[in-house]
């Protein structure tokens, strides 16, 4: 399921032009019934989708979950994937948004061991990278940053010279831009 997964022949790939894979963001609304999200994941798994991220949280509608998933593949393969996910009864809607049509954000938490670094330097470096301190302990400091996946990559890179204890990324969430009412 990761980018490094060894993939042999995958469904519909005979129709996909080589080298046209790019990251697509799918916003999937799924009714919160037992097994419903499992079915969505099952389709992604069975079709051996190249998952980049997967985020799940309650929707504004009651009893509905919103799944935001980033998949790397060719357009034609994604179209089939969307058509297959739409066939799941509990799925209300699937939208494929590109970065241009949507606001896409991700959160990262970065924990730095502070035993060998000056806290003031660390905080300054964090501020420069756009990260704020959300937690401190006698031995570690945790930063948080929000941004596009590319911005998050930059934040992570900015901390590389420090003793990183752990990094966690939330996975991307996206919202289609309302450009006309």
């Amino acid at each position: 399921m990761t980018n490094n997964a060894v993939t042999s022949v995958r469904a519909h790939h005979t129709n996909a032009p080589q080298g046209t894979a790019k990251t697509h963001t799918l916003i999937i609304s799924v009714v919160d019934r037992p097994g419903a999200v499992d079915r969505v994941v099952g389709v992604l798994r069975r079709r051996r989708s190249m998952l980049k991220s997967f985020a799940l949280a309650p929707d504004t509608q009651p009893e509905v979950f919103r799944v935001t998933v980033q998949v790397q593949d060719a357009e034609v393969v994604i179209d089939h994937l969307v058509a297959q996910i739409r066939k799941i009864i509990d799925v209300q809607e699937v939208i494929n948004v590109t970065a241009a049509q949507a606001v896409q954000l991700e959160i990262v938490l970065i924990q730095i061991a502070t035993s060998t670094v000056q806290s003031a330097d660390l905080i300054a470096a964090g501020q420069q990278a756009g990260a704020t301190v959300v937690d401190t302990t006698p031995v570690a400091m945790t930063f948080e940053a929000t941004g596009s996946p590319e911005e998050i990559d930059q934040v992570v890179a900015a901390f590389q010279s420090y003793p990183i204890h752990d990094i966690v990324r939330s996975g991307c969430v996206a919202m289609a831009r309302l450009s006309s009412v």
């Binding site: 519909h12 129709n15 034609v76 089939h80 058509a83 297959q84 739409r86 066939k87």
Partner: peptide, 11 residues
């Protein structure tokens, strides 16, 4: 009637 059948085997 099934959109998933389009282009599946034959474009």
């Amino acid at each position: 009637i099934d959109a998933a059948e389009m282009h599946k085997v034959k474009v």
